[in-house]
Nucleic acid binder design. Structure first.
Lengths: 189, 189
DNA sequence: GCATTTACCTAGGACCATTAGGCAAATACC
DNA sequence: GGTATTTGCCTAATGGTCCTAGGTAAATGC
């Protein structure tokens, strides 16, 4: 019998595509096997279990996001960098909603965070070099930026902003203005 | 055969408690039936399907949160109100992680948002009365606050902040300082 | 006290996750 | 190139979840 040539990476890749098309929660070992014309049980040669699949998709998404953000950040500083950074995340989430969802929910706590987590916080810190913040305020600001972007993207994609005026593009741009102003004028304790 | 006296509200309540104890994703029609000593199929007299259960738990959580926030907000204004508002959400999420997760992910888009959604955004607007913002900046600020709080709570509970110094209490307090400063000094376009 | 409603049951189908054990294709080694 | 090993995929089977259809007994209405 001919072999399908599967391996963990191809499965994660296919799972990521499936997540974007039909939703991360619909990505199942059975569905993936079906797509490759193979029996469910066969995938367990490559995956520990279904959580392993989810974790791999999450890691793939985190790495892709980090790559995009790094590219967007190159050669920029200050507000320019802030916008590029924020837009990179937001655009990724819109283009790849399933992957983005995977990155949020698909983690066995440490494994996923350990991989690309430091890259993300490192890049957030890089942005802050354009502003005049020293520790521990820098850490506070890193956490604030992470919260705003993650929160905004998640609320926006959940439709929380779509039932009222003005449009979300305008808000997004004004939120970036506000964050820039805040970072330039970070309050003393 | 004796009847168990079930109804949709009791099921949602029990589901909410179960969510806090073992995680929202573990709340299943089967598990709930087991807890009441009843067959799975019996619950379908009270629930349309399993999504219906999740939606009801989400609505219960949203309503409880709105009640708490309303109580916390009573008689406060300005930064005092901002802190009370933010802490009410954060404390709720910590005390009821399963319910909080339900409120985020347990929505068929419109149904859940339609119910308590307006109450939440109304209260966010109430906070801003202590600051000098007019439309459309008020809406932008409502969305920013929602994003920060939701994002912070979700990252914090996911452990994103727990692997570095300083502690998250300090950051939380400094983030509230920063938001207060930002709202008092909202940048013009 | 009877008719109606309704809360629960049994039975069963569809899908998913996972394990055990087998066989044939690929690969490694001489 | 032939043999030994590994490994990719199989069948078979178990058990969990969701959900529908159709029945029966308890509660309720009159």
């Amino acid at each position: 019998m001919a072999r399908a040539g599967l391996n963990a990476e191809r499965l994660a890749q296919a799972g990521a595509e499936m997540a974007d098309e039909v939703g991360f929660d619909k990505v199942t070992v059975a569905a993936l096997a079906r797509q490759f014309g193979v029996k469910d049980a066969s995938l367990y040669s490559h995956l520990k279990n279904s959580q392993d699949l989810r974790t791999r998709i999450a890691q793939l998404a985190l790495a892709e996001m980090a790559d995009r953000v790094a590219a967007a950040l190159a050669g920029r500083a200050g507000k320019d960098a802030l916008e590029a950074f924020a837009n990179a995340y937001r655009d990724y989430a819109r283009e790849h909603p399933g992957r983005y969802a995977a990155a949020q929910t698909g983690l066995d706590p440490e494994a996923a965070a350990a991989s690309a987590g430091p890259r993300h916080s490192g890049m957030t810190r890089a942005i802050l070099r354009g502003y005049d913040l020293t520790e521990p305020d820098q850490t506070h600001a890193v956490r604030l930026l992470g919260s705003v972007f993650h929160g905004y993207i998640s609320l926006e994609s959940g439709g929380s902003f779509s039932h009222s005026e003005p449009g979300t593009e305008e808000t997004w741009s004004r939120v970036l203005d506000a964050l820039d102003a805040l970072l330039r004028n970070w309050p003393a304790p």
